[in-house]
């Protein structure tokens, strides 16, 4: 092809810093995630339990309410590590439902519509692309996990008639760490699985299946082969153990079935590494043309 115009020159103006470019992807990712009603509905559902917990904290710190409830009230309205463990567990599983809805929207459409070559032809790396999508998912999940958990912690610290927050700082830090570990894991897992499944609907199911089916397999290994190591396939159990330890809550589970923290962390890290390998294989500037 002949080129007659030779006065094109490379852009010499101010260039956006590389690290800020991922925010463009994150912004568009957030807009995509929130473009459906189902995300809004799920988000509202995720915020219902914190409202209930807030009311419980209010009642717990209200002398009239405690007096009315008598001795039962002291037990039911106890605001301690177990209470916040319940908050964290419920919020984390709701976040999982939200992630299974949002993650496929962020990545599946780009892959199915062969948009990756176009996106990656811009001045953004594959790592930057994944980081942008990850940031969008991480931010959304944060609003239903550690943010409400810490707000409840802060409210308890404010409402308590005795100094509470300083002496229970372990609970707040534990909740933050537990929620961050969980959303880091499910965000990576969600993006990795979504990149491998071309049908958005199936991707949602696969995210749940990948958590629940190995849990069942792990239970079979534990039951049949009489070994506690089968529980390392059981993400819900592993996370419960981890959260209990982070919040310093004594569990009721048989000691023989306890897993070492290092083993749990190693398994979770392996899960993250596997997700990154899956993303690395799939997120490439290539186009699939079916004949």
């Amino acid at each position: 092809m002949s080129i007659y115009k030779h006065h094109y020159r490379a852009y010499t103006g101010r260039v956006t810093p590389i690290w800020t470019r991922i925010f463009a992807l994150a912004r568009y990712g957030l807009a995509e995630a929130w473009s459906t009603k189902i995300t809004a509905v799920l988000f509202v559902i995720c915020l219902i339990p914190p409202v209930g917990f807030l009311f419980t904290i209010y009642l717990s710190n209200n002398p009239s309410a405690r007096l009315l409830m008598g001795t039962v009230g002291t037990r039911v309205l106890a605001i301690d590590g177990s209470f916040f463990l319940r908050v964290l567990t419920i919020q984390s599983w709701l976040a999982m439902a939200l992630a299974s809805c949002i993650a496929p929207r962020l990545i599946t459409l780009d892959i199915v519509d062969n948009a990756l070559p176009i996106l990656l032809s811009h001045s953004i790396s594959r790592f930057g692309y994944v980081l942008g999508k990850y940031a969008a998912l991480f931010a959304t999940l944060s609003t239903v996990t550690w943010v409400p958990c810490l707000l409840l912690f802060a409210y308890q610290g404010y409402a308590s008639p005795v100094p509470w927050a300083a002496s229970n700082l372990r609970i707040g830090v534990g909740m933050l760490a537990g929620a961050l570990i969980w959303i880091a894991l499910i965000s990576l897992l969600g993006l990795a699985l979504s990149s491998w499944v071309k049908w958005r609907g199936v991707a949602t199911g696969v995210i749940f299946a990948v958590i629940l089916v190995p849990a069942g397999v792990g239970a079979i290994v534990t039951g049949v082969l009489h070994t506690k190591w089968g529980l390392l396939l059981n993400v819900p159990v592993m996370m419960s153990y981890l959260w209990e330890r982070l919040l310093d809550v004594h569990n009721r589970i048989d000691n023989a079935l306890q897993l070492p923290t290092m083993a749990i962390v190693t398994m979770l890290a392996l899960g993250c590494c596997l997700s990154m390998v899956m993303l690395n294989t799939r997120i490439r500037a290539r186009e699939v043309v079916r004949g």
Partner: peptide, 26 residues
């Protein structure tokens, strides 16, 4: 007892459920 648990808790709740979800929704 173990076999009954596997059928009831794994196959019915997870294996057959997700298997059929994949097969039939496709």
């Amino acid at each position: 007892q173990m076999l009954a648990s596997i059928v009831h808790l794994y196959y019915i709740r997870l294996g057959v459920f997700f298997g059929c979800l994949g097969i039939f929704s496709r």
